[in-house]
Simulated scan of single mutants.
Amino acid sequence: MNGTAVAPAAGTVLNALATGTGSAFAIDTELRAEVQLTAEDGITGTIADDPDAETALIERCVELVTERFGDGEGGTVRTESDIPLASGLKSSSAAANATVLATLSALNVAEEVSKADAARIGVQAARDVGVTVTGAFDDASASMLGGVTVTDNTADELLAHEAVEWDVLVWTPPERAYSAAADVERCQQIAPMAELVAEMAMEGEYGRAMTVNGLAFAAALGFSPDPLLEAMAHVEGVSLSGTGPSVTAIGNREDLERVRESWAQREGRTWFTTTQNTGATT
């Protein structure tokens, strides 16, 4: 029994670490998962892009799906990704989403589970293996559903969802940052700003919301605000993505090109993409 699926990366409108409310948007960079189920015990995961990377998340995703919708099958899961790992671009959420959908497909039950509920399975797996603080339903829902979402991560509740058509510029430094290692207490100190960002996001003011979020969380997490300041005069919105280190900006291509010239002077990779409104697919 085999199944495959793909899921996109995402950028941040509002980091949920401060209050539990989060917002994210899918971008057109993908991760692919292939699942092969057998009658044997045990699940073995492989991450093609980093053979030494931890595979507990994707293995747990397969386990949860086979426990709920199958007969506890074993097998293998392999992911291959264009999303930089541990960069703030939701590679873990994309991996969980693609793995859940691929496993559902392998069991021939993908049509029986809504995409939102499939995302919740991945969120539970992420909590089980400790790769997330909030559960990251904001990131998971954006990657699974496409477009932009606003969520209550304390209840895994979808508060808002809509399609958006944005050009996106991403700067990804060479260093990595892991969400589970973020300083939650410092992030909670900026809760008043996060509440303001949530209000703007719920009113559809995503660009302004991103920028306020970016400045606040860069300060809380110890990142330089300089890349954001370089972009602010030219874009609709710019933010630290997740817990970093990547920074994303949205706007029209011509204005983003001006920012690209500045960011390209920095160490790391600067690249263009767009929002993605389809979400994860089998």
Rank of each mutant, 00 (worst) to 15 (best):
S179W: 04
M193H: 14
E205D: 11
A160I: 12
Y178P: 02
D183Q: 03
D183A: 00
W171R: 06
R208K: 11
L101Q: 06
L101V: 05
T211C: 07
A106S: 03
E162P: 04
P174H: 14
A191H: 01
V131K: 13
A155Y: 13
L169Q: 00
D156P: 03
D226Y: 10
A136D: 01
A198K: 06
E185R: 11
E203F: 03
L145M: 12
T151P: 11
V212N: 12
G122L: 07
G222P: 04
E157M: 05
E165K: 05
R186E: 04
R186Y: 03
G135N: 15
S143Y: 04
W166F: 13
A136N: 01
A118F: 02
V113E: 04
G122P: 07
A98G: 03
G207N: 06
P225A: 11
F137K: 06
A155S: 14
S179D: 13
M193I: 13
A116T: 08
A118P: 02
D117R: 07
A95W: 14
S224Y: 10
E185F: 11
L196V: 15
D152N: 08
S141A: 12
A209K: 00
H161E: 07
F217G: 00
A180L: 15
G222L: 11
V168H: 01
V100H: 07
V133Y: 09
V129A: 12
V150N: 00
E111M: 02
R127E: 15
A119L: 10
T134D: 15
Q124D: 15
V164W: 03
T134Y: 15
V109F: 03
D226A: 13
N97K: 06
V184L: 11
T99N: 13
V170A: 00
V113M: 01
V109S: 07
V150A: 00
R176H: 06
